[in-house]
């Protein structure tokens, strides 16, 4: 498989703290990869570095060979990297439909007018928010706001989607629905980097996982094997004799 997203030696320092330390990995077309690690291990920083919210101190990020290292978030988004946020972020003064129209209007196709509206409705249908375009985004329930965030990310026509704890806070029924929804994106050719603490979702969706501890990659491989590695268990649970 050819690499769609290629991350090499990615490093980010905040003063004396090295949040991400020489991280390298690649993501192939249609691949869904879990990015795991205890709190503070640098997962969200990786998401911010890849999506352009932060500039790396060193290293490179390439998307289909195009160097997007340190590019502004809007350029990265237009190049094909979509994202959701750890704490759900919908645009509060906009309607549900406008939240999605925005990403279409400034996405790679720069749609506007009737076609923009049609596509926005299509993306809302896709995530199960059909017919709710006229409501205010903040009037939606928590899970529906997450769906809206996903619709907005999909509207940007991403080839790589970064999902930051998208499953957090969902009840078991919602979790099953959400897992199906994310699983269906693979068929559309979208590669996903999934930061997640909910292991069932990771097992179900990600054949491969990368585990971080203190900003460094400590494992990368098939999910079942990675989750059984002693170093991974130690990073999550601490040493038995500690």
């Amino acid at each position: 498989m050819s690499a769609l997203l290629e991350v090499r030696g990615l490093t980010r320092r905040f003063g004396g703290l090295v949040a991400v330390d020489g991280l390298s990995f690649s993501l192939a077309e249609r691949e869904t990869v879990g990015l795991l690690g205890p709190n503070g291990s640098g997962k969200s920083t990786v998401m911010n570095l890849v999506s352009g919210a932060l500039s790396p101190s060193a290293g490179s990020v390439r998307l289909r060979g195009l160097d997007i290292t340190g590019a502004s978030p809007d350029r990265v988004a237009r190049a094909g990297v979509g994202r959701t946020f750890q704490l759900v972020r919908v645009l509060s003064s906009l309607s549900v439909l406008d939240n999605v129209r925005l990403a279409l209007a400034f996405g790679p196709d720069r749609l506007w007018g009737a076609e923009c509206d049609r596509r926005a409705r299509h993306h809302l249908d896709e995530v199960g928010l059909g017919g709710r375009g006229g409501e205010r985004a903040t009037a939606l329930t928590y899970i529906d706001q997450k769906r809206l965030e996903l619709a907005r990310a999909l509207a940007g026509k991403p080839s790589v989607l970064l999902l930051d704890e998208w499953f957090a806070g969902l009840n078991p029924t919602e979790l099953a629905l959400a897992t199906r929804l994310i699983g269906s994106l693979r068929e559309r050719g979208i590669a996903i980097l999934l930061v997640e603490h909910i292991i069932e979702a990771v097992r179900e969706l990600c054949p491969r996982c990368i585990v971080l501890a203190a900003g460094r990659r400590i494992a990368d491989g098939p999910t079942d094997e990675v989750l059984a590695e002693p170093e991974v268990l130690r990073s999550y649970l601490g040493d038995a004799d500690a």
Binding site: A53, D74, L91
Partner: peptide, 25 residues
């Protein structure tokens, strides 16, 4: 009525989301 208007309202709401939606803030 234009996309700029939508962009400005998005910037007013949340600049980070606006940027990640492709707007040159």
């Amino acid at each position: 009525r234009s996309r700029i208007g939508l962009a400005l309202r998005a910037i007013g709401d949340d600049e980070m989301v606006a940027a990640h939606s492709g707007i040159a803030i």
